[in-house]
Design a protein around this nucleic acid. Sequence first.
DNA 1: TATTATTGTGACTACGAGGTCACATGACTA
DNA 2: TAGTCATGTGACCTCGTAGTCACAATAATA
Lengths: 220, 220
Amino acid sequence: MPKPTFEKLPNHKREAFTKGFLQEFAANNYDKASVSVVVKKLNIAKGSVYQYFENKLDLYLYLKSLCEMTKMQYVLGIKREDYATFWDYYRTQYEAGIQFDLEHPLESKFLYRIGEKENSEALRGFMKEWKQQAIQAYIGIIQGEVDKGLFRKDISAEAMTYFLVSVSLGIGDVLRDRYHIDFDENIKDGKPLFALDKTVLMEAVDEQIVLLKGALDFKK
Amino acid sequence: MPKPTFEKLPNHKREAFTKGFLQEFAANNYDKASVSVVVKKLNIAKGSVYQYFENKLDLYLYLKSLCEMTKMQYVLGIKREDYATFWDYYRTQYEAGIQFDLEHPLESKFLYRIGEKENSEALRGFMKEWKQQAIQAYIGIIQGEVDKGLFRKDISAEAMTYFLVSVSLGIGDVLRDRYHIDFDENIKDGKPLFALDKTVLMEAVDEQIVLLKGALDFKK
DNA sequence: TATTATTGTGACTACGAGGTCACATGACTA
DNA sequence: TAGTCATGTGACCTCGTAGTCACAATAATA
């Protein structure tokens, strides 16, 4: 986490700093992202970085927590109990994610990288924990659907959760491939990752949801 | 592709060379895999590597084609027309993949990395093409199922294909996470990635197939 | 055996990374 | 104004990488 020196920085400096490194980590994975490059771009001394943060990993984790907090504001208010079906809930969550991407493309791309399988050894521990927590949270919800008789009972909630997560993580790729989206170009141009009409995107998402329903819904 | 010098090498030398670099590329991504490290491990001169191959990328692509050819021997004979349903066909393919992993763990891990989202910039072009070809091949098969009235008609074959691919790529992670498998450790010990009883693994696969059936099969 | 062609070698180059530190600069206090 | 403390600086250090090349060693041919 940042040293006091960083917290005391005037806003415009701190924001420029954050933005510069967010761009770098959004465009490159942890290992390839270069402190030296950003430092040149921002016209600050390399030593400053290490007066603000312990090291590269410390800086990365700070940015990660920043992005997560921003995304939370979009997703946290969405509660299962406020929706008639799991799929209304799920769809709303996904839509909020797209809205987040629309308004915070850098943070969105940063977080998109976390879902990637291959990650630097330095990060692997954090990512594994992160994924396990996400999975566990979802298992609880899915088990709830099973108990309500809304999801099938012949397959374990765990298996269904992994299934759902696979598809969820894949949807981003579906969108990217089907609409020939170049994430890196969009990032460079300051556009959102999914620089397309939201309704078009949601159509593709809805297709995947229809398939998910077929897979998980209880059939009498 | 290798220079003539490499082809003329005595078998034991060529095999040791190949194995050494397969291990390195199985354990590290393209960027992190180090020619220098392997060279030390094999007790050969660095210059030799560049008498066998143009450069690191050339060497990597050769190993990739090697692994693909080996895997082909397991999968190529499996034809859709030999199976009653798509799912018998799909299951057999997956089982063959596990068998391949059992007998060629190094090659299996090497290829597993290709499915990963994050890849070195040097490789991105190759991987994109590779994925597109795989997708296109599958779309043809899936469309065939639709035409036969076996798969649902209300969703495009393309959307169903992406759905199937998402889940297929995810199954590896399901197995890894559910059975707490450490790929890197297994590789280091010379074990297969999925060092578990094949029938146990296939049980988990079958669960996912049941869900896939629910999603894609035509319901009257 | 002498000559030529092929293969093996490892110190070396050029590069770029993360991180350090003695010093310069600026701001606030006495 | 003089002194103190926090912040900014960039040359420098260590490390590791891919790739090179003049030379040594071996194999093949005459």
